[in-house]
Nucleic acid binder design. Structure first.
Lengths: 208, 208
DNA sequence: ACAAAATTGTTGCAAAAACAACAGAAAAAT
DNA sequence: ATTTTTCTGTTGTTTTTGCAACAATTTTGT
């Protein structure tokens, strides 16, 4: 029940005339939304890839989260108190569902299929998001670049096995792990020289 | 609706004879639960303080999250795939509600008040958890100890103003920010010498 | 009230990460 | 097809962090 639910199916079901839903398309590089004012926006990425990014005062880019098909995001999940400007950037063509979330139980006038399905599955959708965030916290709490890399490779290997292609470019990965790119590159070189991994750009093979 | 909801009230309302709910007490230092097997446990901290902790292979303690009254936690929020052992430790006397979560819509036989309320408010409860986790990610993604400290002080000052008492001991704070205690202590000394803050143990005053 | 244990602040030193600059490779744009 | 831009790997240098050890203070336990 929890894992075989496909948001896409859910999207297909909703009646497109639901007054509280908008579907928008974005081109690569466009800003999908910013987390500045509290519009209670709740979004589902129907297709494409997007990043939740922030720039610190040094100009370092931080990729706080990466969204892919079926990911959920939006202002409702973000504490607007902080004075950090987050931006959701489309990495490629994206189709996004935008929903104005006030209360899960507040439906549109017609109580359409979309709302019925949303109420039914929202808890599960959102629990899996928490799961993701918890893993992310575990990763970021690691102290060394090496541990972050190995921890991240671990997560990927659970899904794809010993050989996989990073969902990030090397530069983006460093932003995702919140470390300096060249330092990370140096650490990758060490891991290679120690025969822990093979790596060529995005292609990684774990040798342990 | 979202923010004035009090889980305690919700607890008071539920009929204690709900077959899917357990209430347990824990003494300081006791392990409330571990995230090792997938029992789909969902917990609410009714009173007390507890930490979600992990120890890395160097013996460094990591406080992944701190729970206080009304916090929710449990295995359902944790990706059991990772080979990291997390423990929820009681920091003081704790009263905990344990609920076996299969599906939010699967109620007990009597469809008691607890289940009615849970279904009604679960989305809001859980959204506020995501908000907390997102802030935490922002904090951990900061690269320097100084930025982490200032970022954390920022969060606290939003709530308490320029003067406040840390909810952590200095040692615990370093575990929470995932930095070395002595390094953090050194950085605090620098912030003091630069007249950015005043600090004496848990007492902090921001001078900016 | 006293002893034991834990916490705190400090410092020297070693290790790691950030910063900066550069050349070659790949990707994107025209 | 060619130019421009971005990405990648590398390395020297500086800065920051981690580690270790210690004394002083505070908290805890008996």
């Amino acid at each position: 029940m929890k894992n075989d639910f496909n948001v896409i199916e859910f999207i297909k079901e909703f009646s497109t005339n639901c007054s509280k839903v908008q579907i928008k398309n974005f081109e690569k590089g466009e800003t999908i939304t910013t987390f500045l004012v509290n519009r209670n926006q709740f979004c589902i990425l129907i297709s494409g890839t997007a990043d939740l990014v922030k720039y610190d005062y040094n100009g370092n880019k931080i990729i706080a989260e990466r969204f892919s098909e079926n990911s959920i995001f939006g202002e409702i999940f973000y504490n607007i108190n902080t004075n950090n400007e987050f931006i959701v950037e489309a990495k490629e063509k994206c189709k996004v569902l935008l929903y104005s979330y006030d209360d899960i139980n507040e439906k549109c006038k017609s109580n359409c299929k979309f709302h019925q399905t949303l109420v039914r599955y929202f808890p599960d959708i959102i629990i899996s998001k928490i799961t993701d965030l918890t893993s992310r916290i575990e990763l970021l709490s690691r102290r060394t670049t090496r541990d972050k890399l190995l921890g991240y490779f671990d997560l990927l290997s659970k899904q794809y096995g010993k050989s996989f292609t990073l969902p990030f470019s090397v530069t983006e990965l460093s932003n995702y792990l919140s470390v300096d790119r060249s330092s990370m590159s140096r650490e990758l070189a060490v891991l290679k020289s120690e025969k822990f991994i093979e790596q060529d750009r995005r292609k990684i093979k774990l040798l342990y």
